[in-house]
């Protein structure tokens, strides 16, 4: 019987029409626009080949944005997963406070990043901010730095803010993974005399491998798209020291360089696709190995 069923295609039409028109079509046309001189002052858009892409190599700020975006993605991904996993392991110990702590740690994830940017601007204020107040109160005056206006430090302040914002998400995914492990397996290992570290390495970690995969993939992709936090905390400054792809695109969009900023967006698109696919295939392969 089930072979005879022929589900009509029209169920897919509304979703496909909207998706193809408002997501896929702009993406495809961005490849074309990236090859044009499209600009606020230009009446007729003309094809200029790879000029926009060639220009990118001569723009120091773009190369800086590329370096910053990649470094931020790597550091945020590592820290988010390290802290997320540690929190999940702690909460998985079935403490009395687990439900409420879980909710608190996840909370930054539901607040808009823009607001978090303003909150941390206040926290990191060099004279009055709570961070420096606490450091001074603890006698660590030398650590009470100019968090957002020192070009050497501002980038790391952004990373810290972003890690504060996203750690809860990784924690929730790890916690869900940990809860799928039957407690009997852990108990057997305990009876066999396996210590915590050895249980973690040989049992827990391999069993939460799918959660590791998905967490790494999502953190890398999301941090490559970072925007609001940088916009509010530093606007890419001081100078261009914290410029990332999305603030760079915004800057050139604001100057009316539509073709050029579209080309930069295409580069971001390829970086995300390549890194996303690479991370996925590496981690998937390892999942099979263990």
């Amino acid at each position: 019987m089930s072979k005879g069923l022929k589900y009509p295609l029209y169920f897919l039409f509304p979703a496909a029409a909207i998706y193809l028109t408002f997501f896929i079509a702009p993406t495809l046309s961005s490849f074309y626009y990236s090859l044009t001189d499209w600009h606020i002052d230009v009446h007729e858009v003309t094809f200029i080949g790879f000029e926009n892409y060639i220009r990118m190599f001569s723009e120091d700020v773009l190369l800086l944005a590329l370096k910053n975006t990649l470094l931020l993605a790597v550091l945020v991904t590592l820290l988010q997963n390290l802290f997320g996993l540690l929190l999940a392991l702690a909460l998985n110990e079935k403490l009395k406070l687990t439900p409420i702590l879980r909710a608190v740690f996840y909370m930054p994830q539901i607040i808009c990043p823009l607001v978090i940017g303003y909150v941390f601007t206040a926290l990191l204020n060099p004279e009055m901010g709570l961070v420096n107040m606490l450091l001074r109160a603890a006698g660590l005056d030398f650590l009470a730095l100019d968090w957002l206006s020192d070009p050497d430090i501002a980038f790391f302040s952004i990373i810290a803010t972003e890690v504060w914002r996203v750690t809860g998400f990784a924690m929730i995914i790890y916690l869900a993974g940990l809860q799928t492990i039957p407690s009997s397996i852990i108990e057997y290992a305990q009876i066999d005399g396996a210590g915590y570290w050895s249980r973690f390495r040989h049992i827990t970690f391999p069993l939460i491998a799918p959660a590791v995969t998905i967490n790494f993939l999502l953190s890398i992709i999301n941090s490559l798209k970072v925007f609001e936090i940088v916009l509010v905390l530093t606007r890419g400054g001081p100078g261009y020291s914290t410029e990332v792809f999305n603030t760079y695109i915004m800057r050139h969009f604001g100057q009316g360089e539509y073709g050029y900023s579209t080309a930069v967006n295409v580069v971001l698109f390829f970086i995300i696709s390549v890194i996303g696919l690479a991370v996925l295939s590496i981690l998937r392969k390892r999942e099979v190995d263990i």
């Binding site: 702009p26 993406t27 961005s30 969009f253």
Partner: peptide, 15 residues
């Protein structure tokens, strides 16, 4: 694929 891809925002304005 759309779960991963960033939006091509400027061509979206034009569209």
């Amino acid at each position: 694929v759309g779960l991963i891809m960033p939006v091509a925002i400027i061509p979206t304005i034009k569209l």
